[in-house]
Design a protein around this nucleic acid. Structure first.
Lengths: 194, 194
DNA sequence: TGAGCCATGTAAACGGTTACATGATTCC
DNA sequence: GGAATCATGTAACCGTTTACATGGCTCA
């Protein structure tokens, strides 16, 4: 019984108390959006697969005319989650960030636009940090109930975004200080790639 | 003429002096692997698309029997790259990290295995930092030729990985200090999702 | 002479997102 | 009455990865 990280996201969210597919998606939007976003179109088929594999059980939980399925993690499911948590990660983290990609090629811009770019990247980070900050209380509440790691991850996100902010502030200052090139950077005549 | 971030990766690498598809892939492996990895199966079709759109020109650069195509960025290509660099980023950065996902659900493990997980994540970061550290001199060399940002991005990577290391060190210390729960954490009886 | 790098491509599979389709319940 | 939320799914598309296929050149 294999599984992608998304399988374990669903499994783990069920274990933490989410019952429906909709609830899994909602919980993910709140707390894991930045590190492992998902969509309903992914959650529902994943739940079916997990059921087929015997890692979760489904029972009907309709209220009146509104249909709803309630899922529970089985013993096999719990075992699979633990095995995954214990396994050494092979898949290296894909950090893909378009902002960094832009930064890498920023020599093509004149200095003032380089600064604009850095500021734009910073603003994006500030916004994300603010969004994450809002969920810190939820983490604290969970921690008092004995579930510590959701809060830890939220703290990590806030601290990491703050770090990037500081770093970009420093970069901005450096760029303002020592404008080595006088203006826009023409493509380098030749020379081996970076 | 639209374009994905990968289009601009190819365009940008050409502009920085890479000439063949192979060279673009090699340059990316060295300096952008952590932030925007790519594969040859992506580079070659992308070059064809860019040529069709008139953003690059291709001319034959075979040596004897070994075939090679050399590409150059056109004026349109340069303009497209600049437009992209100037545009406000809509696509939010996907930070997807399986390590953080694991951490989020680590309450399922007993304390000693939580610590093992944190140490494992840290080791992965140390390795990545070491790899990035090696390319810092390349960035410095480029900077002296007037191309500063590849070096800046390398420094960012090193600093960011160092930050995560320190953060995980602190987390490890915290977990060792105050083991709030005595042993493994059973699934919470009930309660709304996080 | 063989390992390793240079060099180019195609095909299939995969994971994920977006769009589509439908309808109930709740709260203002 | 209408907006927002709860709730479930499917179909099509897209970007990316992995595997496949081929061959020349270089250096130990």
């Amino acid at each position: 019984v294999k599984g992608t990280p998304s399988s374990y996201l669903v499994l783990g969210m069920l274990r933490l108390g989410a019952r429906s597919g909709y609830a899994i998606k909602k919980a993910t939007d709140i707390s894991m959006r930045f590190f492992w976003p998902t969509s309903l179109a992914q959650v529902y088929p994943e739940l079916s697969r997990l059921e087929d594999d015997g890692l979760v059980t489904r029972h009907d939980d309709s209220h009146g005319a509104r249909t709803r399925s309630a899922y529970e993690v089985t013993a096999d499911g719990e075992a699979a989650l633990l095995e995954w948590l214990r396994s050494s990660e092979e898949a290296p983290s894909r950090f893909r960030d378009e902002g960094v990609l832009r930064l890498y090629f920023a020599d093509a811009l004149p200095l003032d636009e380089q600064l604009q770019l850095v500021r734009r990247l910073r603003r994006r980070i500030v916004d994300s940090e603010a969004e994450l900050q809002e969920i810190l209380p939820l983490g604290d509440a969970l921690a008092e109930a004995g579930t510590r790691f959701p809060g830890i991850v939220a703290r990590f996100g806030v601290d990491a975004f703050a770090f990037v902010q500081d770093w970009l502030d420093q970069l901005e200052a450096e760029l303002e200080e020592g404008p080595t090139p006088p203006s826009a950077q023409p493509p380098p005549a030749a020379g081996p790639p970076p």
